[in-house]
Design a protein around this nucleic acid. Structure first.
Length: 201
DNA sequence: CATTTGATGTTCT
DNA sequence: GAACATCAAATGC
């Protein structure tokens, strides 16, 4: 049984995706596999993607494809997709139906189910390498394309209230891997917990 | 230590 | 064909 509360639907429905990205820091991203084993981690690094104007977003200019369709839906669901043919990336869809806002979760700090996360990653460590990095945390938590469009208040995937992170302990940095996005490439829309080791390089 | 390279599906040109 | 919200292993100091 769970002792912590899920983030409420209203958390995800707000308009300011930058604020939501900061607010997500410190909360707990959780999954449960078919055997009922829970794995979770503290969110330590996020990035905001703000269509239609953001050139780094898949939904730039509100471009709808079968893949991006998920981002246009009502906030509070997962947007999971494959990048580089190899890695699943996990995003939180925000704002109301028709607004394609999302927050990429880039890193977590391991919390529950560490042995199962190590098994999934084929690693024997709790160092940042286990869960720091957008492709790494999805592997550690067992997140795949099957989780795309799933509610973040479901039995197999959810986000619990963790600790509040004060504004003074948050750093804003440029986003990673989006050099093609011209004037949006340098925007400080990546947020980390300043004193956490569990962030990508 | 730093830099390069191979893996490989979906989308767009 | 090329690019891509990446990672890990291999190669070069």
């Amino acid at each position: 049984m769970k002792t912590r509360k899920n983030l409420p639907s209203e958390f995800y429905l707000r308009e300011d995706v930058l604020q939501i990205s900061k607010d997500l820091l410190g909360h707990h991203l959780c999954t449960r596999n078919a055997d009922g084993v829970i794995t979770s981690g503290i969110i330590t690094e996020t990035e905001a993607y703000k269509a239609p104007e953001d050139k780094a977003s898949h939904a730039y200019q509100n471009k709808r494809t079968p893949r991006t369709e998920t981002m246009f839906r009502t906030g509070g669901i997962a947007y999971v997709y494959l990048i580089y043919g190899i890695h699943q990336l996990f995003n939180v869809v925000t704002n109301v139906d028709g607004a394609a806002h999302a927050v990429l979760i880039r890193s977590i700090e391991p919390l529950d189910g560490i042995s199962l996360m190590q098994e999934r990653r084929d690693m024997n460590t709790t160092k940042p390498k286990l869960t720091a990095g957008p492709g790494r945390l999805t592997q550690a938590l067992g997140i795949t394309g099957d989780h795309n469009a799933r509610s973040l208040r479901s039995d197999s995937l959810w986000i619990e209230e963790g600790e509040d992170i004060s504004e003074t302990n948050i750093s804003a940095l440029p986003r990673v891997g989006i050099d093609y996005a011209e004037e949006y490439a340098g925007k400080p829309w990546r947020f980390i917990i300043s004193d956490s080791e569990y962030v990508s390089t």
